[in-house]
Structures are given as structure tokens and as C-alpha cells.
Simulated assay, not measured.
Amino acid sequence: MSTQHAFEMLLKSALVQQRVDVFDRDADMSFGFDKCVNLCTERLQVSTQEAGFLRMLAKLRDAEQHWYGVVSEGILYTCMRAAVTLFDELLRRAFSESLAKHLPDRILPISTYPPKHIQALIDEEFRQVQELLRPGKRHGAEARGRIRTLLAIQALEIEEFRISERDIDKFEQGVRKGEGRADLLPNLSTVGTEVSGEGINVTVHFTKTQGAPVRWAGGDDAAAAVKVEDLWNKFHWTRGKLAAKLGLSTGYAAALRWKLGIDDDESCHMHRFHNRTRIDGYSDNAFRKMKEVMTAPGFDIRAIYQEYRFRNSI
């Protein structure tokens, strides 16, 4: 929990350093952790793998704060060592400072458990869950805590998802039916760790490795107990609301979206049909791109609108 909070403060301070607003004026509060991660991928060159690690850390924090999670010493060590590595890298990237400058002189980490590759740790955890759920055992609570941790690690590979009690139930039922790790955790087959250095210079990175091909199962057929968040939570701006937020007429907003290619950008726009009616949704990324252009020197929405009308009349 403390590590996730430390990262949130680091990301927000790094964004402020880049003169990026981290305060939601409408909600009268600062942005949440996930939104800060998304902003940092755009402004601070946070990679996809780094963002995945930060999302996983947030899921593990949520499990500890709001539910009951069981994290083995091996997974805890790997995650925390990777966290120290990433924190140092982000601190250097944003402020040109080393984490070592901010740590006390005397640190004595002691462990009788040698670090292992993340795939070996995941296998061990899955076997432990199987053992805890054997007939006659009464360790369901601990098993579910370990299941929640395994599911949280999938945030490394899946950008937006949530874990519900129903998902835990389905995973538990799958284990009791004899389903294997590949069936219940297909998204973790490509997760790896890269360890370099030794002694005080050791670093740990989570990486993406080649794994078996995976297909998504739909609806209640999905055994992997992963639910992708409703994308309409991300693409929550309608055309009218987006224009109003920007202080533009719908016509001017349409012209600006056309000029920037917003409707063709999958990170900015999506649509669906309901009874033959097309419904368009726009993300905060679309709002930011349009807002940035509007504040740039020489911006002329009337000229863009005239160009838009001329192109559409051809």
C-alpha cells in the first residue's frame, strides 16, 4: 500500500514538473492513480511494460486495502525489487536524481528465500491454491486470497480490468474441477522477469516473453476470471458534451476532431450501434489533444472550420 502511494506521489509530482494539471476541477479533487499512469505514458515516456507494472501494483494494493489478499514472499520480493528499480528509473527520468540519495545509509535486507523467476513463482502459487482446495481441506479463505493475487498480476498484460467476487468463485470452481493454470491464467504465460547486476546493484524488470497463443473467451464461458472494464467508462464524452467542455459549438468541435484525426484514433474514439443508431464516445485523451491545440499560438478555429466545410463539400 505504501509503495503504490509513493508511486502516485512521484507520478503526480513528475507531471506537475512538466506543467501538466493533475487536478480535476469538476470533481474538485486530484486525478486518480490510473489516470496519472495514462498521462505519464503520454508525457513522461512511461513504457507499456512500466505502465503494466504500475497497474498491477495498484491491483495488489486494492486487494490488500479492500479485500483479503495473500502474497507469497517470493512474489512480494520480486514485485518490491522491481518497484525499487522502476522508482529509481522514473526519479532519474523526471528529476535527474538517484533514489540512493533519499534512502538511509543502513539497510539490511535479510532473506533465506532465494529469488526465482516470476513464472516459477506463479506455478508455485497455483500449486499452493490447488493444495488448499483439495477435498477435506478447510483453507478456502487463504486460497481465495492467493487467487486474488494471481488475478491482480494479470494487470501487467491487461490495461483495464476488474476483479469481482464472482471471478474468484469461477477460478475456485475451475481449480476444483481440475482445470490447469494455462486454462485459468492464460494471460500470464507471456510474463517474465529480467534480473541483472548483483549485490546492491541488482535490478529487476518485468518483461514480456513469448508464450503459447491465447484466445479470449466471451461472457460466462471465460474461465480466466478476467473482466475487461466497460470501455464506455473510458470513452465517456459524447460529441455534445465534449464540445461543451471545450467551449465550442458542435460544428467547430467536429471540424477540430477532423483536423486532428480524433475519430480515427482508437485511443480517442470508439462507436457502437444500438437499434441502427450510431453512438460515439470520446476519451479524455481526445479532450486533451483538442485542448492543447486550442491553447497553441496562432490557433484559428474559424479557418479550420472553413477548411472542414470545403473538404466535405467536395
Rank of each mutant, 00 (worst) to 15 (best):
Q49C: 09
F87R: 06
A286Q: 07
D28G: 01
F287C: 03
A27H: 08
H102P: 00
A222N: 15
I75N: 07
L99T: 04
N201D: 13
A143P: 01
F171Q: 09
G219I: 09
L91S: 08
Q18A: 14
L242D: 00
M270N: 12
V293C: 03
E124A: 15
T238R: 08
M80H: 13
G247N: 05
G178T: 04
I168A: 06
L39I: 04
P213N: 03
L76I: 00
M9N: 09
Q17W: 04
T85Y: 05
P109E: 03
M294A: 02
G261N: 01
L108D: 02
A224G: 10
K289P: 02
G145E: 02
A82T: 05
K289R: 15
D169A: 05
T112R: 15
N312E: 03
P114Q: 07
M290K: 09
F53K: 04
E172R: 07
L242W: 02
L121Y: 01
I110G: 00
R134W: 00
E229Y: 06
Q45P: 00
M29D: 05
E64V: 13
S30H: 11
K208E: 06
N312C: 10
D300V: 03
S249R: 11
E172S: 14
V22C: 14
Y68E: 02
H269W: 07
F299Q: 00
Y113G: 01
E160V: 01
L57R: 03
Q18I: 00
D28M: 07
T203I: 11
Q18D: 04
N38R: 10
K291C: 06
Y308E: 00
D264Q: 14
R302D: 00
